[in-house]
C-alpha cells in the first residue's frame, strides 16, 4: 500500500519534470523558458532527495538551479528587446534530428532496461562502505569526493578556475546589478547572516552528514550576491589581487597537499589515514572560500564595478 502511494508520487514527479523540461526547451518566450528551467531545477532537487541523494539535492538547489538560474536571468536582462530568440532549424531538420535522437533514446533505454535485470555495482558500494573507516570521514560521498576520487575533485576545482579565468579575460561586463528595494534590502539584512551560518554548518557537517565544500561555497556566494544586491555599504569587496588569490587558494592548497603526498609516499593524493580527516577539512575550508569567490565573481561578470573606480586594472 505504501509502495503504491510512493509510485503515484513518483509518476507525478516524472510527469511534472517532463512537462517543465519541455516548457523550458520550447516555450515561446525566452523569459518563460528560463523561469521554467529554474522551476525544473527545483523539482529535480526534490527528485534527488527522493532518490536518497541529499548531497546532490542541496547542490542542485544552490548551484544547479539557484546560481545557474541567477546567471541566466542576469544574462536575459542585458539582452536588447529586439533580439530574436525564437529562431530555430527548419522543420525538416528538426524532424530528422528528432528521428535520430529518438533512435538513440530507444537504444539507450533498451540497454538500460537490460541492465536493470542484474545490476553489478553493489560490490563497489560495499567496497566504499568497507573502506570508509580509512578515509578520515564518515559521510561516504565526502569520502569519495575528497579521498577515493580526490583527483577528480582537484580537476573539478581547476575547471571552475578555468571558467573564472575565462570570464575575467573577457573584460569588464555590464553590471548585472540592480539595487534592491528598501523592503527587500531589510529582508536581505536578515538573510545574509543566516546564509553564512548555514554555509559554515554545511562545511562542518560534510564530514559525516550531507553537505560539504561545494554546497557551503554556493551558500556563501549567495550571501555575497545578496549583500551586493542589497547595496549594503558596510559590505566592502576585497581588492582585485586579494580576490584573485582567494579564488586560486582552494586549488592551490589541494595541489600542495597532492605534491606533499607525492614527495612523502610517491603516490599523488595518498592521504595518511591518521591525518586524512584533518587534511580533508583543510582542503574543504580553502575550497569553500575559492568556490564562493569564484561563483560570486562569475556572477558579477568577472569584474565587480567597484574595481574600475577603486583600482587601476591593467586594462582600465
Amino acid at each position: 500500500m505504501k509502495a503504491g502511494a510512493l509510485l503515484y508520487l513518483d509518476l507525478i514527479m516524472v510527469i511534472l519534470m517532463l512537462v517543465l523540461a519541455i516548457g523550458a526547451l520550447h516555450a515561446r518566450s525566452l523569459r518563460h523558458a528560463v523561469i521554467l528551467f529554474i522551476v525544473f531545477g527545483l523539482v529535480v532537487a526534490l527528485a534527488w532527495a527522493r532518490l536518497r541523494a541529499p548531497d546532490i539535492a542541496l547542490a542542485e538547489a544552490a548551484i544547479g538551479s539557484g546560481l545557474a538560474g541567477a546567471l541566466l536571468l542576469a544574462a536575459l536582462r542585458d539582452r536588447r528587446p529586439g533580439d530574436d530568440a525564437t529562431r530555430r532549424a527548419p522543420v525538416w531538420q528538426s524532424v530528422a534530428v528528432g528521428g535520430l535522437v529518438t533512435a538513440l533514446v530507444v537504444l539507450l533505454a533498451w540497454a538500460f532496461l537490460e541492465v536493470q535485470g542484474g545490476r553489478a555495482n553493489e560490490p563497489l558500494a560495499n567496497i566504499v562502505q568497507a573502506t570508509l573507516h580509512e578515509s578520515g570521514v564518515s559521510n561516504p560521498v565526502t569520502a569519495v569526493l575528497l579521498n577515493f576520487r580526490a583527483y577528480d575533485t582537484l580537476l573539478e576545482l581547476t575547471v571552475l578556475l578555468a571558467a573564472l579565468l575565462g570570464v575575467m579575460s573577457l573584460g569588464p561586463q555590464r553590471s548585472p546589478m540592480r539595487a534592491a528595494e528598501p523592503m527587500a534590502a531589510g529582508l536581505i539584512g536578515w538573510l545574509i547572516p543566516l546564509l553564512i551560518l548555514a554555509g559554515g554548518y554545511l562545511l562542518w557537517v560534510g564530514a559525516h552528514a550531507p553537505g560539504g565544500a561545494f554546497q557551503a561555497g554556493a551558500l556563501l556566494a549567495a550571501a555575497a550576491v545578496l549583500a551586493h544586491l542589497g547595496g549594503r555599504r558596510e559590505f566592502q569587496l576585497p581588492g582585485h589581487t586579494r580576490l584573485r588569490l582567494l579564488a586560486v587558494a582552494g586549488c592551490a592548497v589541494f595541489t600542495l597537499v597532492g605534491v606533499s603526498t607525492l614527495l612523502g609516499s610517491g603516490v599523488l593524493l595518498q592521504l595518511p589515514s591518521d591525518w586524512a580527516g584533518g587534511l580533508i577539512l583543510l582542503i574543504e575550508l580553502f575550497a569553500t572560500a575559492s568556490i564562493a569567490t569564484a561563483l560570486f565573481l562569475v556572477y558579477l561578470g568577472g569584474h565587480p564595478p567597484s574595481w574600475n573606480s577603486r583600482e587601476v586594472h591593467p586594462d582600465a
Binding site: 542542485e60 546560481l67 573539478e156 571558467a163
Partner: peptide, 20 residues
C-alpha cells in the same frame, strides 16, 4: 551507492562553470 553521487556533484559544478 555513493560513487555516482560524487560523480554527479562533480558534474553539477562542471556544468555551472561551463554555463557561466
Amino acid at each position: 551507492d555513493p560513487i555516482p553521487h560524487a560523480l554527479v556533484l562533480t558534474g553539477i559544478v562542471v556544468a555551472v562553470a561551463a554555463t557561466a
